[in-house]
Design a protein around this nucleic acid. Structure first.
Length: 133
DNA sequence: TTGTTGACCTCTT
DNA sequence: CAAGAGGCCAACA
């Protein structure tokens, strides 16, 4: 089954439609970020900018990271360890619990991490705008 | 309501 | 080549 379809039958794109300026915001920006990150295939990684661009706010990749700030509190849990910055650096690893968990998870998925940086980042890069849209 | 913050990105010096 | 500053958007106090 493709990850394009959500269990509820509502795709991320549909949710994006709800956040469009044309109508009212039914879904918060956070939920959108969580949905996108949650749909990241195993063994794949993406960048904050990519997710932000997918949501339409590429100029505000910070919001993506901000949303992840509560990734450990929200449910279901969000694989924030698959989200890295444009450099492929584990910028948010310091926010994990413990920080080394992020690197461990990535390695567990088959991704090589060296010096807090993902090896072959482009190779494991997963573009949400290309897969979800 | 206004102000500050924030796991970024990009340009300029 | 490396380091610094600015800017963007949205949520929280």
């Amino acid at each position: 089954m493709s990850a394009k379809k959500s269990a509820a039958g509502k795709t991320v794109k549909d949710k994006l439609n709800t956040i469009t300026p044309s109508g009212k915001k039914e879904a918060s920006f956070f939920e959108l970020v969580y949905d996108v990150v949650r749909q990241i295939p195993k063994g794949k990684v993406t960048s904050y900018g990519a997710v932000a661009a997918c949501l339409g706010t590429k100029l505000s990749a910070r919001m993506v990271g901000w949303a992840m700030n509560g990734s450990s509190k929200i449910s279901p849990k969000v694989p924030a360890h698959r989200v890295l910055n444009r450099n492929g650096c584990l910028t948010g690893k310091a926010h994990f619990n413990p920080p080394s968990k992020m690197e461990a998870l990535l390695k567990k998925e088959g991704i090589k991490v060296k010096n807090d940086q993902v090896v072959d980042f482009e190779k494991h890069f997963w573009n949400p705008a290309k897969e979800l849209l």
